[in-house]
Amino acid sequence: MNLARIRERIAFTILGLSTLFVILPIFAIVFYIVKNAIGAISWNFILDIPRHGMREGGIYPAIVGTICLVLGTILFSLPLGIMSAIYLVEYANDNFFTKLVKVSIVNLSGIPSIVYGLFGMALFVIFLKLGTSILSGCLTLSIMSLPLIITATKEALEAVPFSFREISLSLGATKWQTIRYCVLPYALPGILTGTVLSLSRAAGETAPILFTVAAFYLPRLPRSIFDQVMALPYHLYVISTQIPNMPLRLSFATAFVLIVLVFLMNLVNVILRIQFRKKKQW
């Protein structure tokens, strides 16, 4: 018995240390970037265009570009994602078609981001002749974000009690009225958190935008959805691999801004979730 206790101590220590091994690098990476970036961060860096072959100036166009891409992505993926989730939860029968939809969602979630990039280029840029443009990039990113949005929406819809639907239907509401007034409002917070999460992923993605939208160097703001844009993740890739004699502090500062952007979105997510829990009445 004593031996077993000692074994247990050792095993639990190892498990705890493993967890520490996972957590430490996160701290290390964030701390490392913040420490090296802090001197280079200024309003000028955030609001200026890149100058002198990107070795000076700021990253304003890349920030704007990433925000454009995120907003464009939400525009396509949110309606489609919500509708497919509604289909799966409220309308689908247990048939072959439904199974196919489910398998497709799983499959979409597993496709490598670079394959999305290839597909986006082949379909949107070349076949549909949209060119390397914000439109092509957003479409590509939105297909990629669909699985996350659908899964989150599905969970949110399933969490709404069956009785709400029963009440509404028993009063003579149609199926859609029931969904619209008695299900969606209560699923909304869950849908929102899923959406923000998937957008924070989309904001950090590089591979899908490589051939569909990202501009190597374009020191101005986009004028239409058919323009190319710079994007933060791609810009970080470019300045850290393609530009010789790049001042490192600018690379660090760019990484810092990208992380802050993504973390901010995650923070919004956490706040939404807490608010939701507070307000939940059933």
């Binding site: 996972v22 690098p25 996160i26 990476i29 490392y32 970037i33 924070s200 992923r201 904001a203 950090g204 993605e205 590089t206 993740p233 791609y234 970080l236 890739y237 850290s240 690379s251 990484a255 990208l258 992380i259 993504v262 973390f263 979105m265 995650n266």
Partner: peptide
């Protein structure tokens, strides 16, 4: 969750 949200390009840079 934070780890999952760090963009891959940032890890590449590190």
């Amino acid at each position: 969750e934070i780890l999952a949200s760090i963009p891959s390009v940032v890890l590449g840079f590190v």
